[in-house]
């Protein structure tokens, strides 16, 4: 339950912040949230990955569906992928990895400095 809470907090904060600021601020959000959370580094990774991954999934779908996959199809071809769905998947995986690493960093730091 706690993990889900952090995922949602990170997702909401990351959406707002990256609307206004560059993409990597999503990682900063994941770090700031997990460094202040009482969870294990493993769970912090999942919180970051889940939070940022969720944001990227929702935003990408929000762009992709009304576009009828025109852009994702073309970008997939640029990267040599067979279809736009894989491009969407790669996007989400990238967001999840960056978010996860940032969350993990926060979790490790929190554990080390916890009294």
């Amino acid at each position: 339950m706690q993990l889900l809470k952090y995922i949602i907090i990170i997702a909401i904060c990351a959406s707002i912040i990256t609307w206004l600021m560059p993409w990597y601020m999503a990682a900063a959000v994941a770090f700031v949230v997990t460094v202040n959370a009482k969870i294990t580094p493993g769970k912090a990774f999942l919180a970051g990955a889940g939070g940022v991954g969720l944001t990227w999934l929702v935003v990408a779908l929000y762009r992709d569906i009304p576009n009828e996959h025109i852009l994702s199809g073309r970008m997939a071809k640029v990267l040599g992928l067979p279809n736009g769905f894989l491009f969407l998947l790669i996007t989400i995986i990238l967001g999840a990895i960056v978010g996860g690493m940032a969350g993990w960093s926060g979790g490790v730091m929190n554990k080390a400095f916890r009294k």
Partner: peptide
């Protein structure tokens, strides 16, 4: 820059123009 490019909020995805725009 892949992070910047794939970011759904600001990257290439922002050029996905809704067909019913």
């Amino acid at each position: 820059a892949l992070g910047r490019l794939l970011d759904p909020m600001n990257g290439c995805w922002a050029s996905a123009e809704p067909t019913g725009k």
